[in-house]
Each structure stands twice: as structure tokens, then as C-alpha cells.
Design a protein around this nucleic acid. Sequence first.
DNA 1: CGGTGTGAAAGTTTTCACAGCG
DNA 2: CGCTGTGAAAACTTTCACACCG
Lengths: 236, 236
Amino acid sequence: MAESRPQPDHIGDGPSDASVPKVVVSRLSLYLRELQRLEAAGQETISSGQLGALLGFSDAQVRKDLGFFGQFGYPGVGYRCDELIRAMRDILGTNQPWNVAMVGVGNLGQALLGYRGFGRQNFTITAAFDADPGKIGELVQGLRIQPLEELAATIRARDIRLGMIVVPAERAQEAADSLVAAGIEGIVNFAPVTLVLPPHVQNVGVDLAIELEQLSFAVTTKLVKQPTGAAEPATG
Amino acid sequence: MAESRPQPDHIGDGPSDASVPKVVVSRLSLYLRELQRLEAAGQETISSGQLGALLGFSDAQVRKDLGFFGQFGYPGVGYRCDELIRAMRDILGTNQPWNVAMVGVGNLGQALLGYRGFGRQNFTITAAFDADPGKIGELVQGLRIQPLEELAATIRARDIRLGMIVVPAERAQEAADSLVAAGIEGIVNFAPVTLVLPPHVQNVGVDLAIELEQLSFAVTTKLVKQPTGAAEPATG
DNA sequence: CGGTGTGAAAGTTTTCACAGCG
DNA sequence: CGCTGTGAAAACTTTCACACCG
């Protein structure tokens, strides 16, 4: 649901309609990333064809994707970068700040705590938990590592709705269970296991070895075949 | 300097023939992960229905996916875990060892160097490069950090075919260009930018902020159209 | 029986192509 | 003009349903 700007009803509210294919939403994130780069570079407008070409999509695909959420363009001109960025962030929900809890503060967890990219999209890791008593109280990136016993109370107190699981595979399900019990609404899971979650909890998995596996397949199996026109994005 | 747009959607061919949809290959990795867990737990056989249920897919989907690559099952019995694991690894290419080069050894790079999950799937990070002169020669996880000047020679000398880009966004394209010039065949890119690569170089992007963005959308909009209907998949 | 493998049907996503607008 | 927005067609993916097998 895009937000209407001032203006004549040009931008904004569209078919706040039925369900949107997941793949469309993933492309939205890519459009947004590209738009932010373009705007930082001083570009004011962009056409669907130009935006698509940057990512390997067709112009029609870009327009159709945006069409799920409303009308954002100006015929003969294209889209205004600033307006489209704002609309995309409204749709994706990142015009609002999000607090995130991290469970597991090992090497990877610590690296993620220091990752600047989250903040730029309005995500802040506001709490970090670990089972290792030796780590409790330690400061990482200015954040105090808390014991798991404090997880539920902290998540509720700090209005945390999203969680990241960065524990070893064997402990991922119990970490997920704790987060769910604390009322979390979505989880990014870096452990290489499939979590069992209630249907109201959203979940995105990131398996680092699987990313390499997919490459291994693609490299071994010379990929060919292609209908017409453009191609595919860079983000898997 | 690389040229060319991003890439197509279909991937090469299987043992039989015909091009395989990318989404099928990504499910293959999930099947393999599940099978390895089951085998470690002592399970000898599994049916398509059981395997699918563990991942939130239908039995038919599992059978169709496997059907792209051959016949692996026994009517009335299911699949033998050990045989199917071996077949999946043959298909994905992970029965062979892969050497991987890492470019950028910051916080995230160091964490990835220590990640045990790669080795289990036969990937070894055999070289690590960084632009920071202060880091050169430093040992991380037993690996000596090398200057970028040594990248091409090292990649050729050590039979490295895959690369991981873990540098800041501004330097990702030049890192990619160096890897391409050195003859790399595939890249996993952790920088939040779209790389421009020649079409013969495979590419998988992992944008950590985008994973959270996708969750943010899913949490605020409960209206995402899911391909398969059952439990809960995992990998995003 | 329980379960695979597979055409054919159903459903979904992408591409095409063109009216309409500034 | 150049470009959007959008039905309609094409292409692709998933589900169904059933022959067949041990």
C-alpha cells in the first residue's frame, strides 16, 4: 500500500488488493536498492526500461511489479526517484524503524552487529542474547549481551518484532521457540536447518553453504536457454 | 571492467536433458540439507511425502523436482537417504571439492572464514585478499591475508573457481572485475550492489538488509502469495 | 498395500502490444 | 514524441490423478 502524496491523485494508493507474488516483493527490494543509489548519484527520474536494464529485467516486468501497488509514473517521463523510493519504502515497511533481536553472538553474530547496512534501511539490533555465561555482560558494538532468560521480557519491553537466529544448527529450533514464545513476528534464520514455526510467524532463511552450492551447480552446468529480452537479477 | 547485463533464469541441463528451473535447484539444496540431517539421525529411507512435509512442499513437487534429473526412488518404499544424498551432491557438484577466494576480510569476512558450514559441503576458502596494507600478512583462521596484487596469480595457481565478495559496496564492482580478470567462474556477492558481469560468470547475491526488508513486508502485509501450500519453507 | 514417475490439467508469472497521456 | 499502465497471450510451474511396481 503506497502512501498518497499531496498532489492530484497521481502517486500512491493502488489496488491495495489481493496477494502479491513473493518474487515481486523480492524484486521490489532490488528496485529500491538501485533507486537509492541513483538518487545519491543525483538522478531525478528513471524509466522502467532503464531501471530494468540495471537489474536485468524487462521494462514490462518493472511496470507490472509496480502495478501491484499503485500508479507511480508519469507517461513520457518515467518515475521520480524520490517519490518512488518513498513509495517502495512505504510498501516494504522501511519508512518505519524496526527493532531486531539477535540470538547467538558468535563470530557471525558479532559481524552482523557491526554491519552498517541494516541501519540504512531502518533496522536496529536492539538486543543480543547468548547462552554462553562467559559472554553475558560483554559489550559488542555498544550492545550488552544478555542471557537467554531475559529474552522474553526484553523483546516485549523494547517493542522488538523481528529476530535473527545466529546460533549453531543444533540450537536453532530452541532459539526460534523462545522468540516465538516472546511474541516475535518474523525471523531471519542463519542456521542451516528448517525451522518449525507457527504460521503467523514469518521466516526467511539464509544458508551460506547453500548459496555456494547454487553457484557450484550453475558453474558446472553451463546455463543457457533464454526466451527473449532481458534477464535476471543479481540477488539470489 | 565487466560488461553485459545480469543473467537469464533457466539453468543448463540435467542428466537427461531439458533446462531446469532455478527454483528447482534451490529446492534441491533444501532436500539435500534435510536428507543429510535424516541420515545422521539414522533414517535409511524417506518418501516424497515425508521429505516434502519437512520443508513445506507437496509430495508431487518433490517427485517432479527429482524427475528433472533422473529416477532415484523405489515404488512402495521411497528413496534411500544415502543414495539420494550422493545423487543430489553429484547434481549440485559438491561431491567434488571447491576452492574459494575471499575478497575483503573485514568483520563479516573474518566470520565467514571461520564458518564451519562451508567445509561440510566441500567448499574451502583457500585464499583471502584485502586492500588494507595493515592487514596483509595477518593470519585469520590460519589463512594469510594477501594483497590484491597477488589475486590473479593466486587464483590461477590454486585452482580457485569461486569467489566471495565481502567488501564495502563502493569497492564491490572493482573486486568483481579483478576476480573476473583472474578467470573466476562464479561469485557470491555480499555487498549491497548489483554487479555487472560477463554472462559466463555465475553470480549469487546475498543482501542482508534485503532479507530483513522481505520480513518487514511479510510481517506488515499478511498477503503474500505462496507457491506451495503446506508448512513453512525456509530459504529466502 | 504404500509409493514412484509422469502425462495432462490447473494455476501463476512473464511478455507482448497498444491505448492514452503529458 | 517517449513512456506508463494494462488487458490478453504466451510461457512456465505446480498440482492432479493414475498406471505401474515391489
